[in-house]
Design a protein around this nucleic acid. Structure first.
Length: 397
DNA sequence: TCTGGGGTCCTAGGACCC
DNA sequence: TCTGGGGTCCTAGGACCC
């Protein structure tokens, strides 16, 4: 059967939600990411009105302020965005049993074989767009194609409120019509590499033999580029990620140098990560610490132990050990990040040494606190060290 | 214009085992 | 008398995506 995939993207999602909730923002430039004067911020989303001034995602906020000082600058309201995202995803599931949400604002739908039910893919896409607009007030852009990969690129072809259908058999033609930097999966580095090989257009890239791409870019990237230019049919729907991780990181307003402050920051990160591990009911044996120094050089260190992390204290102690191992004394720290990797469900039996060193009890106490706090979010149970009566932060935003 | 936070996947080398 | 080969796990760094 002819495969049909939709890729659906919410247009300038965070900014559109704000314009929806605050009619006074409608038709005006809106920039999510921070308030003017906030340090070390980047643009998360810019409304199309702001994009007209050259503002785009990932741009330093200070730049955005200069390009478009009259914009409404907002820090954003993730809770609200998640609410609306959920609502939109629900609508998608009315149209396909196979929805793969890729992030808060986009999803793939396997629409293969739904023609009898809903009509042609184009008609169905129109219906979805109309239903999302009617029920949420938001617009989406949809790409329709015979492969997931091409549908993804097609959804970005015409925005906002776009619909792009790539008829079966025209995938390669479509890929060859794109500028090189629109090839999904090709970032700055690979683009540079491609250009330095004398390849200037997707057409030229398409003409390369698999074998010469492998010689130029290595097996993985070479094969990817070859396959991408032909619509990347290998990208399949049902694959599970094999290496789940949970992380939390903070860029501080001012560089950290004082050891006590640094340890408090690590404790904060450990609490955040452990809270989420509880929330997802997972455990992990691998803890990784990331340090970004004042000059933006970034290093990381990780350790896998035989026994999984059990308490926030445990995680804090491990992170402190990693910090001492890696930190170059005297250097200012702009970012600290803590993550646990290779997480697995706490329900899968643990193949390891079982012993009681007093941590088990502590872990049970913590479990109780976490579930209590989950039931009653208004109760705040926090470590004394992390409370700050002066209202001064550690420098974290 | 000084550069967020949350992720996934890949590479290359080393340790260790059979 | 010049050093196998495959498999698995681990680590540090990096590319890329939203």
């Amino acid at each position: 059967m002819q495969k049909v995939f939709f890729h659906i993207d919410l247009d300038a999602f965070f900014a559109s939600v704000e314009q929806l909730d605050h009619p006074e923002y409608k038709g005006k430039p809106v920039i999510i990411g921070g308030k003017p004067g906030d340090r070390r911020c980047v643009v998360s989303t810019a409304s199309y009105e702001a994009r007209a001034f050259g503002v785009h995602s990932a741009m330093p906020l200070t730049t955005a302020c200069q390009l478009c000082p009259q914009a409404f600058f907002l820090r954003g309201n993730m809770k609200r965005y998640h609410e609306l995202s959920h609502q939109v995803m629900q609508i998608f599931s009315d149209y396909s049993p196979d929805v793969r949400q890729m992030s808060i604002d986009e999803a793939f739908l396997d629409m293969t074989g739904t023609e009898r039910l809903f009509g042609s893919p184009e008609q169905t896409a129109q219906k979805i767009k109309a239903q999302v607009l009617e029920q949420t007030g938001l617009t989406v852009s949809i790409g329709v194609a015979s492969t997931m990969y091409v549908s993804k690129i097609a959804s970005g072809y015409k925005k906002p409120d776009g619909l792009t259908v790539i008829p079966p058999g025209t995938e390669e033609e479509f890929m060859c019509s794109l500028p090189l930097d629109k090839v999904w999966g090709v970032g700055t580095k690979t683009l540079e590499h491609i250009r330095s090989a004398g390849i200037r257009t997707t057409k030229q890239l398409y003409k390369q033999k698999l074998n010469s791409l492998v010689v130029l870019f290595g097996n993985n990237t070479g094969t990817f580029l070859y396959s991408a230019m032909r619509g990347n049919k290998d990208m399949v729907f049902g694959e599970e990620a094999k290496n789940h991780s949970i992380s939390s990181e903070t860029t501080y307003d001012f560089d950290l140098t004082d050891l006590y402050t640094i340890e408090s920051a690590l404790m904060q990160l450990a609490e955040t990560v452990l809270w989420r591990m509880h929330d997802e009911n997972v455990r992990s044996r691998t803890v990784a610490l990331k340090i970004r120094y004042e000059d933006f050089t970034t290093v990381s260190v990780q350790e896998t132990q035989d026994v999984p992390v059990r308490t926030a204290d445990d995680l804090f102690e491990r992170s402190k050990k990693l910090f001492e191992k890696k930190y170059e004394r005297g250097r200012g720290i702009r970012l600290l990040g803590l993550s646990v990797d290779h997480v697995e469900s706490r329900d899968t039996p643990f193949q390891g040494q079982l012993f009681d060193d007093g941590v088990t009890k502590k872990s049970k106490v913590e479990d109780a606190i976490f579930s209590l706090q989950k039931k009653h979010p208004e109760l705040s149970v926090r470590k004394a060290r992390l409370l700050n009566p002066t209202g001064q932060s550690n420098g974290a935003k």
